[in-house]
Design a protein around this nucleic acid. Sequence first.
DNA 1: GTCTATACGAGGATAGAC
DNA 2: GTCTATCCTCGTATAGAC
Lengths: 211, 211
Amino acid sequence: MAQTSLASNSATPKKHSFKQQQLLFREAAILDTVNQLLSQKGFDLMTMDEVAANVGIAKASLYKHFVSKEALAAASMARLLEHALDVMANLPEDDSSLDKLKAIVRWSVSTHLQGTMPLLPSTRSTIQSALQNHAPYMDCLGRLVEQLGAWIQQAQSSGELSADLPGEVMLYTIFARSCDPVADFLKQGGAFTDQEITEMIVRTTFQGMMG
Amino acid sequence: MAQTSLASNSATPKKHSFKQQQLLFREAAILDTVNQLLSQKGFDLMTMDEVAANVGIAKASLYKHFVSKEALAAASMARLLEHALDVMANLPEDDSSLDKLKAIVRWSVSTHLQGTMPLLPSTRSTIQSALQNHAPYMDCLGRLVEQLGAWIQQAQSSGELSADLPGEVMLYTIFARSCDPVADFLKQGGAFTDQEITEMIVRTTFQGMMG
DNA sequence: GTCTATACGAGGATAGAC
DNA sequence: GTCTATCCTCGTATAGAC
């Protein structure tokens, strides 16, 4: 199956590069659609018919690219985490750890508001077990947790974040902002721009409602 | 239908009180089960078969009490909001507005952790429209929003909460704690008691991770 | 590897006896 | 108003032609 989507290996360079390019392009288009739908409706309410219709291909063709709905969602999530890692790797080096943590929350909420954040956390969904068996996803997640954990520790050491609040709690709190319904409610209210909403959530995440 | 579950009116006091008692008792049992299932799996993943099985009655009997799955969930939600209003009405009068707001968040998270909080917010679910057409729910919600809004304004006036953060944002932030996945993650981790988790979430909600 | 057509199961809701 | 048995729709997944 084309599920892992590896590029051509060095032994046979460019042998089928055009076909492969086309394949990857098609799969990227599928995953873009899946990202949107996962963001709008979540895994359980997203249907394969819908995905196929939005991409503009037949449902059966979808199953040639991804073996199941779970695999499709997992691929989408893995790509999102790769994107997150990329964002994190490209933050200004002279930013403090706290600044970097704020930046990743800003990116999460902003992505969520744009409708392309496939609901990372959310316990109570049937994908969770599928994700844990999806190596690419788990690999990215591990690296992401490691990096965020390091920044949290540094921010605690330097006094930018409270030293007496478990880092675990902070990690989950930051993660949870990616699926925070507050953003949806505020956007639905229509009184604020996406940027204003993002900044207010970043603020309440780090300073609460008293600071 | 017995959907509104009003007690016997004053014109015919106790005429069928025993039967009615039994009816209300049965319906309360159903709603207890629904609360648990909504808390564990959410609306979309909860099945009527499951509800019937857990209550110990046939599925068809369920439909004698509630006309649809949506009506069932709406009744469950309405009862929860009534409960919340009750908790709010019985807070110590000499508590400050901020204390009261903290108390309601504490109650929300605690209820969530106990597994009896039927996921209030959560956009992306099919119940939302049904809830908006359910008068008892909307009525309770209105009163709840009014009371919380008043407390927020008072806390802002007294300087307990930031005056430059829109009250709307605070309201939603408080609401969102009832379905915060952070609580689930921390509970799953097993490193903290429910009470510890609750207090940490109350803290981060109001003081953020820096305070 | 794309399509049309279809198998199959799950789940919401109902029929009709008691 | 409780039950058993059933209907019907929807959604995942597959068969098989091109």
